[in-house]
């Protein structure tokens, strides 16, 4: 079985639910009383897919403006970025565009990107249309999904990743699929063989 180490950075504006998403994903419950992240939090998680075992190292960054200058520290060595916005906040979606620009100009190697619209349980106050987000995701070559960390929901909108929605992570929470989708993408972009190094992007297909 292949063992893959992958580093993921979670980026996005304050209050969009980055930490809630990660905490839900790590298998804990949703907490309404989560306090703003200070700096960044570090999570690790192992995922077993059909043909590979993935060791994920997740940097959950703080969304506040004052931490913005520290972001390079976390995305510099990342293989993938989870770009999270809040579907009820057009501003948080606009901020994603800034993040993408920053990643494109600061990270020499291409990264696996995944666009995540969180809080999809708040459909009635939606401010970002699915079509708009899907179009943007396609333009930057990112996977796209909507999630609800609150209700533990995951909706994939990406044609190419339909397979992943029903992937073998059924016992785990749906936001996990969003992560394992990312992980599978990382694998699919790699060559075969057991790779311990995390800098897979050097040998992109």
């Amino acid at each position: 079985m292949k063992v893959v180490e992958a580093k993921i950075v979670v980026l996005g504006s304050q209050g969009v639910g980055k930490t809630s998403l990660v905490v839900r994903y790590i298998g804990k419950m949703f907490s309404k009383h989560i306090s703003p992240t200070i700096g960044a939090s570090f999570f690790t998680c192992n995922i077993n897919l059909e043909d590979a075992r993935i060791k994920l190292q997740v940097w959950d960054t703080a969304g506040q403006e004052r931490f913005r200058s520290m972001a390079p520290m976390y995305y510099r060595n990342a293989n993938a970025a989870l770009l999270v916005y809040d579907i009820t906040s057009a501003g948080s979606f606009a901020a994603i565009k800034g993040w993408v620009k920053e990643l494109q100009s600061n990270v020499p190697e291409p990264m696996v990107l995944s666009l995540v619209g969180n809080k999809c349980d708040l459909e009635e106050s939606r401010a970002v249309a699915q079509s708009e987000a899907a179009q943007f995701a396609a333009s930057i070559g990112a996977a796209y999904c909507e999630t609800s960390a609150l209700h533990d929901q995951f909706i994939s909108h990406s044609q190419t990743h339909n397979r992943l929605v029903s992937s073998p992570s059924s016992g785990r929470s749906p936001p996990l699929r969003c992560m394992s989708a990312l992980a599978t993408t990382i694998i699919s972009k790699r060559e075969n063989g057991t790779i311990k190094t995390s800098s897979f992007t050097k040998r992109k297909e």
């Binding site: 009383h33 989560i34 200070i38 700096g39 939090s41 570090f42 520290m70």
Partner: peptide, 17 residues
């Protein structure tokens, strides 16, 4: 005060300025 006020430290290891 920082530790007391920050529930987020309980969920994971943090790296904070």
């Amino acid at each position: 005060n920082l530790v007391r006020s920050s529930e987020s430290f309980k969920t994971a290891e943090s790296w904070t300025p």
